[in-house]
Design a protein around this nucleic acid. Sequence first.
RNA 1: GGUCCUGUGGAGCAGUUGGAGUGCUCGCCGCCCUGUCAAGGCGGAGGUCGCGGGUUCAAGUCCCGUCAGGACCGCCA
Length: 591
Amino acid sequence: MIRTHQGGTLRASHAGQTVTLAGWVARRRDHGGVTFIDLRDASGVVQIVFRDQEEAHHLRNEFCVKVTGTVEPRPAGNENPELPTGSIEVIVTELQVLSESAPLPFPVDEHVTVGEEARLRHRYLDLRRPAQAAAMRLRSRANAIAREVLGARDFVEVETPTLTRSTPEGARDFLVPVRLQPGSWYALPQSPQLFKQLLMVAGLERYYQIARCYRDEDFRADRQPEFTQLDIEMSFVEQEDVIELAEGIVRALWKELAGHEIVSFPRLSYHDAMDRYGSDKPDLRYGVELSELTEYFSGTEFRVFQAEYVGAVVMPGGAAQTRKELDGWQDWAKARGARGLAYVVLDAESGEARGPVAKNLSEAHLSGLADAVGAKPGDAIFFAAGPRHAAQELLGAARVEIARRTGLIDESAWSFCWIVDAPMFEPATDEVGRQIGWTSLHHPFTSPNADWVDNFESAPDKALAYAYDIVCNGNEIGGGSIRIHRADVQKRVFKLLGISDEEAQDKFGFLLEAFQYGPPPHGGIAFGWDRVCMLLSGTDSIRDVIAFPKSGGGYDPLTGAPTPITPQQRREAGVDAQTPARAKQGAGSTA
RNA sequence: GGUCCUGUGGAGCAGUUGGAGUGCUCGCCGCCCUGUCAAGGCGGAGGUCGCGGGUUCAAGUCCCGUCAGGACCGCCA
């Protein structure tokens, strides 16, 4: 080792020792005759002191240096209680510049805000900043905690292929050309879903993997084209067993990394969550629940409210908004594809209902409205009417926006819940919104629950699944299901989904074939690991917990990827080869 | 695919009604400075106002197009 200590670990107890440190110049305070340098290494920062040493004047920020000196208590009155090392300093006797730094593209400084593009372009400098480095370290500990919990329960960590066959999930695949078979392509896995089920058939019984997944979809703040799941699958279990395990992992993570003991994981059915919060991932840190008014407004003359569903959400104090602010909500709703957001404000003094919608409603409907939705004078009431699901989603989005605008969110709070009893299917619609069939809400291997396993065809819109999502502060952090292990049930599900035998064989014949050989009942869960780490680290973006994230459009500002390929690469990869007439089927089955 | 926002020295920003590349904080370079800790003082360098076109006597500013980044909708089981 070229150093004897890590600078950030030095304390008063080291006083008198001669130490050799190595690190980076974080900041310099040059007083002429005496120069202070904050020396940063992975352990933190320590002040080193030069006295009448010419070479100190040539040091610049982010030079990499090695120093030898004596640890001394700081002169009385000069301690810095802000720093763990603030009671001591190192008086330098020997300096070696290990490498110099060019002028920096941005300040490597906790206090400076830097644009994300510049940070990602020079991510290696960004990661020198303690807060960014801390996020990397936290993620590493989260991985370790997950492995510890799962290892203690006899789970087997298995790596599954990343060069594989296009899988039946909903997203677009990333494709990889195959030089040895021109015209044939691998797909990168959207998740290890099928492999982990095969591992259950294989009798491993308990599998997990911190798995990279790839989906070629458009970006969002919390989406990357490659992301990580903590992927888990178990045999001979029921929904309760998976939930119990998942809670154990989440409890351990939040206890050790957030210092938070989770009291309980309340459960909401999917339909309750939609009815009360207008979301399948409700943020329970605040109330502001939805009210259903379909019955209440039955018989109304107001055409807009003659709908399948009418609901409302209350904005506390919302009556104080200006006309401009209330109009702003219309734009907000239109940006979500709604026609608008009807509202009524209750006069702060009289409680009288006012607003454009009020004059369309009868005296009776107006007078009972406040009680029906739990509003008080001075509040605003927003309405949505139309197809149940869409209207509830709009109100749910309004609920989140209300909480944000009125400061109802306790940023220091943690709220967890399970969303259970998810529907098996949702209507599949064409471009103009006509229903053309059914599609899986989760995926086609999700098992109907005991009530529906024999008759889900009779009411596909009502059938419920053994599917569960875990939600933290309005973020879905994990989801899973009990899988279908009976061939007859699987066949019936495919039939309802309009997936022909031929298509099923073509897409995942290898899984169906495996299921001919005594598959065990099994189920599992996958955590969105980037999101979990984001929440634990208190950052706003999953990019903060990814070492080298991509920016919009899948561009990597650091490497410049993706790049064009040369004509030679193109020829070798076989990108332009004719597609073979028939793709080879896995596992010997034919399409 | 759609809507909106933002592009101004190395970084982060401001820039009024269209009137000189104007300003702020940080960084950078030089000098001064022996107790600072986001040190301080003095001086200095550094600009294709994203790019292209248009309107105008005059464009960072207005208009059109385009590129890049961001947010949201669609999409992502």
